[in-house]
Nucleic acid binder design. Structure first.
Lengths: 338, 338
DNA sequence: CTTGCGATTGGTAACGTTACCAACCTACCG
DNA sequence: CGGTAGGTTGGTAACGTTACCAATCGCAAG
């Protein structure tokens, strides 16, 4: 009787034996069949099917210069739907180029990122796509990466001149803040990341510029710049909304902070606290934003497109432009009014 | 002058040469250093650092029986945040076991899934974790997979006896529907997937049982079972809400359908159409559900936990229980009232 | 019938690593 | 001081594949 467990993977030699040809002929057939007689190809393919043979891609890429067909991708936070979409964009373009992605979650930890990159290189990835952490980036220096091209997404790393895909963080934040000023708000709170996070600095810069140009004072009491998760964002929003002079609007520099702020605003509405409740501008879209109890303006962008663009830069470099200078693509954002 | 591009990856021989030892000693040092003199280990590690050497994991796993340290993961839709969290759960547990994941998006296409699995096996993955598509599953039969263990998540495949992690779809849907009946609703619409999708069938079964037991008639006019995306779900919701006798509540069997339904309800509220607007029960959580303009009951579960559990089953099988019968874990769901 | 050319096929070596075995060295015991 | 055990090191072969070259085949032209 046959057991439920299958057998060892067959090798090319066994296929060759069954088909009555040499391993070379099997290899050639699988590589497209150039200079192999059609009837021989038939026999080989029959043997392949019969044995359930899969070419060993690792052995294949052992030969130097042979691409492994793998792209290493490290993300800071896969739980964030934004990065899920980013990964999907990378995956799609990689698949179009016949590549797979190896995915790792760095969790904003530079040490973990370093491990991931080591492992990726050890697996002979053809390229790396990272959303870099804000920590030490010694492990990303060109001399450490050898010939493996690197593309950064979302964030730049100081001193590292590599292909990079960014969003128009400054412009988007500026325009978002301006829309609040134009609506008559002058007391506008800020929720975001600290300056050491690349996007944190850029998005604050856009807010700051709009406020300065609009003649609106920036009150440190309603600027909170160190929330990484929803719970912390809620607490920060609560603190500023409980002030004697709370902000009339809140600029939120990312997804997590927006959710946190809206959760707090929702709680205040449910608890019957007196309004008016603050308007919100959010850098990053989220589903059903149009159903929120306060008007939410979205600074929208396409994470999947960001991923696709990062992958395109990588494959452009793999397909020839190896020696050209590093390129930066800055993707536009759009503003969606409530 | 030094160019910005790094050099070829050094091999173990070059490290050995620089350290003045044999490749074997380098290999042993990197494998933990058993039976290598400490001063020699020092010299080896210095050479490793100097040259920027990374062990070639592909060559390493060439030897049969050696694990590759890779787990192949295929997801039906990575854009869905639910699956992003699933992937994260798998990634975390895999990382705890020193493994990486290779990720592919099948997009509900069985052919694409087959390609992904072929590629994964060709890369000598230690195991596979799939959210299977509903199509032909010939490529998942044990004789096709050889020795590679497979874990299914979210959905079962008919006729395939392998380790599986499921949600309590039937129970959750039943309890969710009962909560609507208890609130006095009898005309309850259904939005979900068709029966050929495993969860589509199970979640409908829970709804059906609750309706039958509650003596509420099931009207085919308010049962829509073929929406894969948000736009289709919106259209289906619109169709049933425009009936002369619209449902007073809607049971939505997943994330995408919930968003679609709520978008349509929001539109009707904004357009000033007369209510009452339907209550919603949603299988799958989403952020800020508590801020919706109609009460939303959530049948909640933890996608990340589902991923972790799937990975645990896989590693349990890799770590010994290879010959035991297939196990199924059914994770509970919780009901969150508005 | 010979020659030559292109198409087809096979043998060998190499990719980078580690298991296995053999050789060596050291130190301690008798 | 010889013997031996254990710790340390190196050589060889093999993992599965494909590039390169050599060999063979078929066929058409002379």
């Amino acid at each position: 009787m046959s057991t439920s467990r299958g057998a060892r993977q067959p090798t090319i030699k066994e296929v060759a034996g069954l088909a009555g040809v040499s391993p070379m002929t099997v290899s050639r057939t699988l590589a497209g069949g150039r200079n192999v007689r059609p009837d021989v190809q038939e026999r080989v393919m029959a043997a392949v099917r019969e044995l359930g043979y899969y070419r060993n891609e690792n052995a294949r890429s052992l030969r130097p210069g042979q691409p492994s067909g793998l792209v290493g991708v490290a993300i800071t936070n896969l739980a964030n739907p934004y990065y899920g979409n980013f990964a999907l964009g990378v995956e799609e373009v990689a698949a179009e180029h016949g590549r797979r992605i190896i995915l790792g979650n760095s969790g904003e930890d530079a040490g973990r990122e370093r491990q991931l990159v080591s492992d990726f290189i050890g697996r002979q990835v053809d390229g790396l796509i990272l959303v870099p952490t804000s920590g030490d980036a010694e492990h990303l220096r060109p001399e450490r990466l050898g010939e493996v091209p690197l593309v950064l997404a979302s964030r730049r790393v100081p001193g590292l001149e590599v292909d990079t895909v960014l969003l128009d963080d400054v412009g988007g934040s500026y325009r978002g803040t301006v829309s609040l000023l134009e609506a008559g708000h002058t007391r506008i709170g800020f929720l975001g990341n600290r300056s050491s996070v690349f996007t944190g600095a850029r998005r604050y810069a856009g807010y700051e510029r709009a406020m300065l140009e609009g003649g609106a004072p920036i009150d440190p009491a309603i600027v909170a710049r160190d929330q990484q998760d929803v719970a912390a964002a809620s607490r920060a929003a609560r603190a500023m909304l409980e002030l004697p002079d709370p902000p009339t609007a809140i600029f939120s520099a990312n997804n997590r902070n927006t959710i946190g702020a809206l959760r707090e605003i929702g709680r205040r509405i449910r608890d019957g606290l007196p309004g008016p409740h603050p308007a919100v501008v959010s850098f990053d879209d989220f589903e059903l934003s149009e159903l929120m109890p306060v008007p939410v303006t979205i600074i929208d962008h396409d994470a999947q497109l960001l991923g696709r663009e990062a992958a395109r830069l990588l494959f452009a470099r793999l397909d020839g432009s190896a020696d050209e200078a590093a390129r930066t693509v800055e993707l536009p954002v759009s503003i969606e009014f409530p």
